[in-house]
Amino acid sequence: MSEVYDRLRGEIVDGTFETGAQLVELALAERYGTSRTPVREALRRLEQDGLVERGDRGMRVRTRSPEEILEIYEVRISLEATAASAAAQRHSEFDLIRIRRAQAAMDSTSTDDPAAMAAANRAVHEAIWVASHNGTIVDLLTRLNNHLTRYPATTLKVQGRWAEALDEHRALIDAIEQRDAARAHDLARDHMTKARDLRLQIYREDPTA
């Protein structure tokens, strides 16, 4: 059952199934060589993830829009700021080691590989989420990140953003290490606000990106 979910999710994220594509249980079962039951379960999970939605003719790949980007980031900005503030207050020494290690990996990531850039950036954010020691925040941010997988173009490829993001991360990590909750909150908020604006810019230039 998990294999069908993983395969279908991967094909939605990589664009094999385009935005708005109908997802017919029988056809998917034949495609993956399985019965309809695991397909039905996979679709249910993907609906929870925000990758598929119910349309007039059954399930389909969820459509994209600038309004959705704004909705996602409105929540994500708030949660990322809260996570950073909590991390500043509650982090352990091990949390700091994990965050610093993730940032060091990001620093050494090649800018020729957008997927690796996005993954390295996500790892830093996830380490900060974990350092908040708030499972609800981690769960909600993970779900929001699932929504954003349908917008595959990374904001980190916008000219100048990679270096800027690295500097913003370092400042944020320093604030967390110094247990400056207010500064960590504001830095995380501003960091994600810039990401939102760049995401909207990318969408305006190419709605399929």
Rank of each mutant, 00 (worst) to 15 (best):
S2N: 14
D180W: 06
L148V: 07
L28D: 05
D95C: 15
A181T: 04
S92V: 08
R9D: 01
E25R: 04
S132Q: 03
Y5P: 08
I173F: 03
M59I: 01
V61M: 02
M106E: 10
A27C: 00
N145Q: 02
F17S: 03
F17G: 04
I128A: 09
V52F: 05
I97Q: 15
L28G: 09
E68F: 07
E25I: 00
E47N: 01
E53P: 10
G50Q: 07
D167L: 11
Y73E: 00
H91N: 14
R100P: 06
F94R: 08
Y151Q: 01
I202T: 12
E18I: 07
M192A: 07
L96A: 08
E71S: 05
Y5L: 13
I12H: 02
L70P: 13
Q178L: 08
R76K: 08
D139G: 07
A87K: 01
A182L: 01
K194H: 14
T149W: 07
T136Y: 03
A119C: 02
V158K: 11
I72E: 11
R31P: 02
H169A: 06
A27S: 03
A104W: 07
Q103C: 12
T19Y: 03
S108A: 13
Q89V: 10
P38G: 08
D6I: 04
E67G: 02
L70D: 15
N134Q: 02
I173Y: 00
Q159H: 04
P207Q: 09
P207R: 10
A163Q: 11
T154Y: 12
A87L: 12
L148T: 12
R122A: 15
A209M: 06
L140W: 09
E205F: 09
K157W: 10
A127L: 04
S78W: 09
D167W: 02
P114R: 11
Q178K: 06
H125C: 03
E68W: 07
L144K: 07
R40N: 06
L8K: 11
R143S: 10
A118L: 14
R7F: 05
I176L: 15
D113N: 13
T193I: 07
A86T: 01
A29R: 09
E74V: 05
E67I: 09
R64F: 12
E168Q: 15
T19K: 02
D107W: 13
A87W: 06
G50R: 13
H91P: 10
N146H: 11
R44M: 02
I128R: 04
T82H: 11
A182G: 02
T111C: 08
D113A: 09
T34N: 12
T34P: 14
E74Q: 13
E205S: 13
L187C: 00
D180G: 11
E74F: 14
F94A: 09
D113E: 06
R76Y: 09
Q22K: 05
A116R: 04
V138Q: 03
A115F: 10
D180Q: 09
E30V: 13
G55E: 04
M117L: 15
